[in-house]
Design a protein around this nucleic acid. Structure first.
Lengths: 350, 350
DNA sequence: CTGTTAGCGCGTTCAC
DNA sequence: GTGAACGCGCTAACAG
């Protein structure tokens, strides 16, 4: 591998001039820059990341800590990752994934202290997450995707579950629905402190009650089979719900399958609105689902910006930055059966 | 951050002794090692990865290139990743994920040339993968997970699709089934050269013909809906298949749902055998699926070992290392309807 | 078994 | 606008 010294010699300039031409930390005449560039190309020069890191005390690497083994990497996370990777690259950094479990906080901390990364994006944050205290105490720059129970002074970005569920409910109520159910993530996720399970559930219940209605909430295992059972149970209720909001993609498949099997028309007899969805799920059902798509890409960009600000030494933002999901019309949501056609303007999202 | 020099001073030894105590490249007396260790603890010493990398010309990082944005990260990949990460750590390395698309071969190559990693694990290899030629030409150590069309001289580990499909077919034929169908991945995956789609299909067809039977093969989109349609179509065939092998998890859900809806008993009237599955899918259906589980963990360990051997400069292995999936009994496979109960020994996998 | 020392390749402060 | 020189923290000869 050619070194900077080699480039300097070939271009007939000093080593430092090459360095400045590369970093732009000093102005270099167009002529010499030109010679340097062609020398680099001729030699196939690649800057040595280790040497650069040693001298600058920055690795230009941002690490995304994600418990891949436990969660797999769903479509919504994939969107996040690619947006974050691109955002990092635009700022001259590289995004890498560290597949650590939630209980490996020490290893994450040590890797950053060893200089393998300048900062950390922590995903799948639970209500009480051991990683954030470890990182904070060690002075490691980090940003959470999601929120612990108390986020005061901790940099974080997250889905706005409160607003997302409220908009979902408002939309359905605007279509005349009076009996709404929520198919949530499983009891198991709740047990491990998975925050979205709680935030979405609370948001949904509050939004329904704000309309003077009574919420029905079910926590359902992440399987088609569990979704079928949940649907069966909801259909047996009295009064029978006319709309179901789901935040559990695999269970949603089961819900739709059960409705179909029983001959319950979607959306004529039952509306299905899937929230916090990953791209592509809408078209995996028939009729295509109406969804509220997770803002993964926006969160990714935002998370990188926030983290870089932490790396630069800025004080942590006062509050979490929240982004709601956006409604994407499909054909699984319609007016409540027997409801008068919604008057113009009554439907929040035409 | 404390440096090695700090540790040396506190322990009353020379810098190099600390280095050797850490690396083990030279014997250090138990007494001085003890002093060094406690000095390190007292100072909270963490070796500087950049300095170490600069001096040793090795980053001790292995990169796993995975197109997360396009594929998401399914359960089978998750198993692979965590096993690979652990294997890497046992050898004193770190595994990181680089979320590059398949067309970003140049960036992968450059990062390795810059010293950000010592070698690369390439996942989701297609029949004609641009990344492998780029890496080979650049002399970057790598190992494929999967295989290009021609693997001569290219280090690779992969699922043994030929043997897996053969064992699946043998198992079913041993149970009296004479009409077997295969629900494959989608036409779209085939179009982009996704190798498993071809290898499994060929393996299945060959295995069925080896029994003097006629294979039925369908390429199905990765959605429950598409699975339902496939099942419906298979049921209308004459002769009607009594067993279906699937390699498409999401479609499998649809297949089972359609069978249930039509009142076709599983496994009494139709056996379902899901191959190359990720952990957990078996229990997402009712009855639990009989599966042949993808050897993700074994592949992960093997891939790391192979890559490290490449990094060390060993010649590439002559042939790919293949690992079959293992049968995990569930309750979705049974004797063919009307078939005599299998005599002892007639069933390949009791 | 331990100490001394010359780099590893680059960033950056000085002088010019 | 350019060049010389020092140091980042550590590895690995080379000497004892």
């Amino acid at each position: 591998m050619a070194t900077m010294q080699d480039v300097a010699r070939l271009a007939g300039v000093s080593l430092s001039t090459v360095s400045y031409a590369l970093s732009g930390h000093r102005t270099v005449s167009a002529a010499t820059r030109e010679r340097i560039v062609s020398a680099m190309e001729e030699l196939g020069y690649q800057p040595n990341a280790m040497a650069r890191g040693l001298a600058s005390r920055r690795s230009r690497v941002l690490a995304l800590v994600y418990p891949a083994a436990e969660r797999g990497l769903g479509g919504t996370v994939a969107e996040f990752v690619s947006a974050a990777a691109e955002a990092a690259r635009e700022k001259g950094h590289h995004l890498v994934l560290w597949p650590f479990r939630t209980d490996q906080a020490d290893e994450v901390r040590d890797l950053v202290l060893q200089g393998m990364a300048d900062g950390v994006l922590v995903m799948e944050v639970t209500l009480d997450d051991p990683r954030v205290t470890t990182l904070r105490d060690a002075g490691v720059p980090f940003t959470m995707i999601g929120r612990t129970r108390d986020v005061a002074g901790l940099p974080s970005v997250d889905v706005d579950f409160e607003r997302t569920t409220r908009e979902a409910v408002d939309h359905l109520v605007g279509l005349g629905h009076r009996h709404l159910a929520f198919v949530n993530h499983s009891e198991a996720t709740a047990a491990e402190g998975y925050a979205p399970t709680f935030r979405a559930e609370e948001g949904f219940a509050a939004a329904v009650r704000a309309h003077g209605l009574e919420p029905v909430v079910r926590r359902v295992d992440e399987s088609p089979q569990a979704g079928r059972e949940a649907a069966a149970e909801l259909l047996d209720r009295s009064p029978r719900p006319t709309a179901v909001v789901t935040m559990n993609e695999i269970a949603t498949f089961g819900v739709v399958a059960e409705l179909q099997q029983r001959g319950i028309g979607v959306p004529d007899e039952m509306s299905v609105l899937a929230i916090v969805t990953s791209p592509g799920v809408a078209d995996m059902s028939n009729p295509p689902l109406t969804t509220m798509h997770s803002p993964g890409a926006d969160l990714g960009r935002l998370a990188v910006a926030t983290l870089l600000s932490q790396v630069a030494g800025d004080p942590p933002p006062a509050a979490a930055t929240l982004i709601p999901c956006t409604l994407e019309p499909g054909r699984s949501v319609g007016p409540a059966p027997g409801a008068p056609p919604a008057p113009a303007g009554a439907e929040p999202h035409p």
